[in-house]
Amino acid sequence: MMRKSGVPGLRLLVHVLAILPFLWLIWQFSQGQLTANPIRELQLRTGKYTLNLLVLTLACTILYHLFGFERALQLRRILGLYTFVYASLHLLNFIGLDYGFNLALLREDFVEKRFILAGLAAFLVLFALAVTSTEGWKRRLGKNWKRLHRAIYAAAGLAVLHFIWQVKSAADLGEPLVYAGIIALLLIFRIPGVNGLPARISVSLRSKRPRKVRRAYDSEHFD
């Protein structure tokens, strides 16, 4: 049903766009453009990129539901995996570059700081999803695969909590709250009852494509 060869150009574009921020970061790092505290800046920027990718991953589902845009489903896995890659860079930078793998200091911070716990929990969810993202795991898990991968919303919630808990004051809350708002909006469409709505609207708007929407909507793979 999902033809992998369908849109190589689009997939290539997504790969390039997902890798570009990383290359840009490396370039700025090498040029001394990441402030006087580059490790801190790397931490903030990889975190931001992770959240952006997470939002884009979730948006794929909605694009599909709203517009019957099937290609979005092919891109969703790629974006999801890049989300995990950037989350890993974020965590590695923290543990390695920032803390120099100093376990005593790390343990203290992990126990002491709730924003770190929230971030770690989000990472563990993303890790589980990345590992089980292959076709093999999809087959093996059957119906449970879909249930498991709904945990991406938990990861998104935890990631935003991680962001909110590390801002310095109410003045800095704007940005994490924007992310929270977008994710909440994307989640609303998944609530039973609400989630059929865009598809139905889409169907009535595009009466030519009812079967396509219906068919994919029933599919295990595409939810």
């Binding site: 505290n37 801190r40 570059l97 200091l105 002491e112 700081k113």
Partner: peptide, 19 residues
Amino acid sequence: VPHPRWSQASERRIGELAR
């Protein structure tokens, strides 16, 4: 005295790699 967000047990001296 810990802080909810930043390590107060260690610090990064600006311009240095290790804490």
